[in-house]
Amino acid sequence: MNLALKQLEEEAIYIIREVLGQSRNPCLLFSGGKDSIVLVHLAIKACAPAKLPFPLVHIDTGHNFEETLAFRDRLVNRIGARLVIGSVQEDIDAGRVLEEIGPSASRNTLQTTTLLRTIEENKWDACLGGARRDEEKARAKERIFSVRDVFGGWNEKNQRPELFELLNGRIQHGEHLRVFPISNWTELDVWNYIREENLELPSLYFAHKRWVFERKGSLMPVSTLLERSEHEQPIETWVRFRTVGDMSCTAAVTSTAQDIDRVIEEISGATISERGARLDDQRSEGAMEERKKAGYF
């Protein structure tokens, strides 16, 4: 492992152990994406030889790729972790949120309600997450230990300064921490680490043949969840996904990279940013910032 990658690993494990030392009831937010897969691996290292002393939490929009769910269940089984699922469908059925309608409808924003409800019900005081600062400019300003108020909100004007390696995890009753151990990793760091540690990923990350259609310059997967207009004709082509989110807002990229070496080659020369393939971020310029303030992951 090169020195830069090793330093990132040491930093992340130090942060996870600070959570174990400071929080009474932590959890790990697991999306099934590559960043949270890396986070689980780092958490296992931080706790070894003990098992993970906290659950993995999956907020299920009901619009996940099948591959992601199958992968999640295999992983949980293999490492013997506890899995808690927060269901967006449940919140829709209970009338707590209203399903979006129209061709660009997505359950992405609805996740926030389910996430906050699940955190409150389980009384978690710290949620480990795999967000990275290089993803988006609202995340570039995020702390490693980020305090969320009793409404789950992020107040960008009242963040605690983080000095040296000193992480202040003290919170008031009802507040919780979001903790980001891989804050300082880039997309390429994550991929290099996955290769180095030989981590398994959902097959979606590698090139495969799939029916897709073009929308606003992005390749969207054909599914019953996405209404197509008559101009949006499906084509079958070789693609892979760079992020694995809700099927209704995650676009594919054309790719022939069937293994990790090819993927890294492609990313090193990629001309489009990672979140450029997320329609949820393209909704408006401050889309991520607005969602973060409301308590989004």
Partner: peptide
């Protein structure tokens, strides 16, 4: 408002 983090490789 705040310290921002950027990455160069």
């Amino acid at each position: 408002i705040d310290v921002s983090h950027l990455y160069l490789t």
